[in-house]
Design a protein around this nucleic acid. Structure first.
Lengths: 365, 365
DNA sequence: CTGAAAGCGCTTACAG
DNA sequence: CTGAAAGCGCTTACAG
């Protein structure tokens, strides 16, 4: 599968010996190490001519002072460790991208590792050995494992913030108010006349299930409806493999039931899109026959037809708040108790939600 | 948009003073710095009892030797700098994820920066100051800028590899053979009887346009067909904003023309999916009325219906080859001329390609 | 096993 | 402006 091509060689501009230390560099410019150091650090009391001479040599040689030596001398490392649950979840990647950009703009560089079950200890120790200034966790993790790591970080005075995973003991957290998100979805559907709802994967083992259910139930109860009767699920009947396939299977599972809800709540956009295909393949027209919602507002939402009604995470704000929370800790004494901030999501109405009409199969409600 | 919640405080296990150096740690264990160092580095000639004592204290205190001091003493940094074109392109993110995993498995950590136009110099100098062992570039860049950076890296003896961007002077490159990819697409369509093709965004300013066109033309010529007559384009008529919208606009643009090709070649999956919607919105049935192909084999390809015929990048192999190429340079003298390796893509046939039938609008060919 | 010493690359007083 | 020195945290001979 691998071939070789030939490409013109680079111009070999008789490279001078590589300069690796201020000592060598000072010798190269013909100045004292001390003088060079003063120029490098912008200290006063130097002749402009000397400064220019050093700057020119700096540009010519491309010499960069060894950051590790600088850190040993007490300069901050300006490195932030970032622990990702994975790179496969588009919203997580968007958070990473945004965070990296924000950190860079404030002069920090990003060390990125995947915090997989069982590897957490190693990852965090590695960050500690590099004396990162803080650690960010993005995603959902094994609670015991991440809590242990956060305790270790705290013991060393290393600030942290967790993005997404809500409810961790001792963790500074920035999290989306998913209950509010589901409540907004439910109110939208209830306003459209829907009274029976199908869960698409909002089930045990899924992250943030509890918050989501709380939002769903709150919306129902506010209208005097009984969650037990209004919310149906066939989640247990299907294998939870690839989200898209899972969603399609869930749709098929509901269609095989006696009673079909008029609205369906996807745990995320992929599952909802899978269900959309499942319903459409069975000849149903969304939103005429059934309504359907996703969660996360990913790009795919507008790439399907009709476009998917979903919930936007406000990622920019989430990351901005997380970065502020993190950087505020840097020069502060450690806080007594963790800070938890919640971000309000935003309902994005697409074409998959419409007025409820009595199910053709007779929902019985 | 931001609220505060209260969360139980962490157990404050009367933390001992944080240990930050082997000196402090040695004092804490009651051994000599030298002895501790020997245990840390697994040197022989120590009593098991002493080793155990140190290990236990290590676990208890969570002390990690300062990596920067180790590097100063000559230990390799085991850091690799990764320059991303962006985080918005799913295939690029998959490459990053795969690369990070491969590097980690070989003991390297990943420093990630976005290599945006104008910032390249700063990014690479930052990597140099951290004495990264190598630099990887993922994506397409301004040729002059990246070539200048690669020259700087070479001058310092820092290995590099570029993933994707083909044709850079002096660059070690791993690139997908996009010509072969387009040739495979074309042969598939030609076998189905198609003779007129519409370009969906394979146009000036798009990366790898030349390679793609070479593959398209080679396939046509091999069948005695004239690329000038067979390949149509309305790319210039539409604004190239969001790929999905661009694709939909291109479809509309073709539908407004007198002659409609029977097959359409998307520059990437997003554009193809946009065109799919454009055609479907106009009442055409894909692949009965027109055939359509994408490029990259992203997740969306199976989330549309019919599923999209596309080209898989073989990302696992791409990254494996790139990592091998990179790490092979680490302990070697610098190569005289750059290495270029090409990866063969793979056609993935979906439901958007089918037998050609004479266009209902009369293609005239 | 201990202790004193040198040195990695840097900065920062300090005395010339 | 120069030069010698101390010290950041570590490892590695070297002599006890």
């Amino acid at each position: 599968m691998v071939g070789k091509l030939s490409v013109p060689a680079p111009r070999q501009a008789k490279a001078p010996a590589v300069i690796r230390s201020t000592a060598e560099f000072a010798r190269h410019v013909g100045l004292a190490r001390t003088t060079v150091s003063r120029v490098l650090n912008g200290q006063p009391g130097l002749k402009q001519k000397t400064i220019d001479r050093v700057q020119r040599a700096l540009a010519e040689t491309g010499f960069t002072p060894n950051a590790h030596a600088l850190h040993l001398k007490g300069k901050r490392t300006s490195m932030i460790g970032i622990c990702m649950e994975d790179f496969a979840t588009p919203p997580a990647v968007r958070k990473l991208a945004t965070l990296q950009r924000v950190l860079r703009s404030r002069g920090f560089s990003s060390l990125i590792e995947v915090f997989a079950p069982g590897t957490g200890r190693e990852v965090v120790r590695h960050f500690q050995s590099l004396r990162v200034e803080a650690v960010v966790f993005i995603g959902h993790f094994l609670p015991e494992e991440i809590e242990a790591r956060i305790a270790e970080l705290a013991a060393h005075g290393t600030p942290h913030v967790v993005i997404d995973h809500y409810g961790l003991k001792g963790a500074n957290t920035v999290t989306l108010d998913r209950a509010a998100g589901m409540e907004a979805v439910m109110n939208h559907l209830l306003d459209l006349g829907h009274r029976t709802f199908g869960s698409l994967g909002i089930t045990k083992g899924r992250p943030s299930r509890i918050e989501r259910m709380a939002g769903i139930q709150a919306a129902l109860r506010a209208r005097g409806l009984d969650p037990e009767r209004c919310l149906l699920s066939v989640d247990h009947l299907h294998e939870r493999n690839v989200d898209f396939d899972y969603g399609r299977n869930l749709a098929a599972g509901f269609l095989a039931q006696r009673e079909l809800p008029t609205a369906f709540l996807g745990h995320n956009d992929e599952i909802a899109v899978g269900a959309l295909h499942g319903f459409q393949a069975a000849g149903l027209k969304v939103a005429r026959d059934v309504s359907l919602t996703g969660f996360n507002h990913q790009d795919i939402c507008r790439m399907v037809s009709p476009t998917l009604t979903t919930v936007d995470q406000n990622i920019e704000e989430t990351v901005a708040v997380a970065a502020d929370l993190l950087l505020a800790q840097l020069d502060q004494p450690p806080r007594a108790r963790p800070v938890v901030r919640t971000i309000k999501p935003q309902l994005v109405i697409g074409g998959t939600t419409g007025a409820a009409r009595p199910s053709s199969r007779g929902s019985g409600f």
